[in-house]
């Protein structure tokens, strides 16, 4: 518990004050230029023409329907990937088997694939010229350029979030507590709900919040599979693009400010979750 991170004060050796402040100044300037400035710009542009214009932009029918679609997409992706993440973490962290490292690499794969490719692969399978596209057309089922395609592509890009957060956490916590629960007569599910889950609670929240942020904010992959049908297959980020390309900057930034706000909330929860996870690990 006393393993508090070292701070400059306990350092016996550090740079001269001038150097220190110079380095701080450079770092802060860099962060200001790249992080704070864009963030400020989003809100500034959004409120450029006043609050009423801002609200009007958000109340527009197409905006509302894009919000609906984005929430719907996240509502599918997050629970599915959460379930997958927990299941995969259980198998990988609590058991040993050959090929484990390969499996971890494969789970991380969607992170290293360009979002454009993430969308393309579904077009190749479900598109009209795709593997099962013709069959789908015969049966009047639309997947790409429709909502299911958007959901699938989003599941792909958010696939690793929960798993990659939980695997190292559950590995670090070992198996002893679960074994202790079993010796005391708990069933497998009881052990999972009452011992494993509370221990990784904040790790799950961390994974879920990042998964959700990406699901709601994904642009590239969704852009490929959506077909850009206004009011139908437009998610919030796609709607931002459309408004921007129509030179409707205020509306574009108004909608973008929603996403920026979501990003800020995500960062806050993430920071809290990170802190809690650290705390939990130190209890060992």
């Amino acid at each position: 518990m006393s393993a508090s991170p070292r701070t400059s004060k306990d350092r016996s050796q550090t740079e001269p004050t001038v150097v220190r402040w110079l380095l701080i100044a450079i770092a802060v300037t860099f962060l200001m230029l790249f992080l704070i400035l864009p963030l400020a710009a989003v809100f500034s542009q959004a409120f450029d023409k006043g609050f009423t214009v801002y609200l009007d932009a958000l109340r527009e029918a197409d905006t509302l329907s894009s919000i609906k679609l984005t929430v719907l997409t996240a509502a599918f992706c997050v629970p599915l990937n959460l379930f997958f993440g927990v299941t995969a973490a259980w198998a990988i962290a609590k058991f040993s088997f050959p090929g484990k490292n390969l499996l971890i690499t494969l789970i991380d794969l969607p992170f290293s694939v360009s979002p454009v490719i993430s969308g393309l692969i579904y077009v190749l399978i479900f598109g009209l010229q795709g593997w099962i596209g013709p069959w789908l057309q015969d049966h009047d089922i639309r997947i790409v350029f429709a909502v299911p395609g958007i959901i699938l592509a989003t599941i792909f890009v958010t696939f690793p979030f929960v798993a990659r957060e939980l695997i190292p956490l559950m590995e670090a916590q070992g198996r002893e507590e679960e074994e202790a629960a079993l010796v005391l007569g708990a069933s497998g599910l009881q052990t999972f709900w009452r011992v494993t889950l509370p221990n990784v609670k904040w790790g799950i929240i961390y994974g879920v919040i990042l998964c959700n942020a990406r699901a709601m904010g994904e642009f590239g992959a969704v852009s490929v599979v959506s077909g850009h049908i206004r009011g139908m297959t437009n998610t919030v980020p796609l709607h931002v693009e459309i408004l921007y390309n129509e030179y409707n900057y205020t509306a574009a930034f108004a909608v973008a400010s929603l996403l920026a706000f979501l990003a800020l909330i995500t960062l806050v929860i993430k920071t809290i979750a990170e802190w809690k996870v650290q705390q939990q690990l130190q209890k060992n």
């Binding site: 002893e176 507590e177 005391l184 009881q190 009452r194 509370p198 221990n199």
Partner: peptide, 27 residues
Amino acid sequence: KVGFVFQHYALFRHMTVFDNVAFGLTV
């Protein structure tokens, strides 16, 4: 029905002492 005391105790860190001891009965 064995009692097992682990080398590093394996106490449930998110439960109080009371809940730890009660666990085997409550499950």
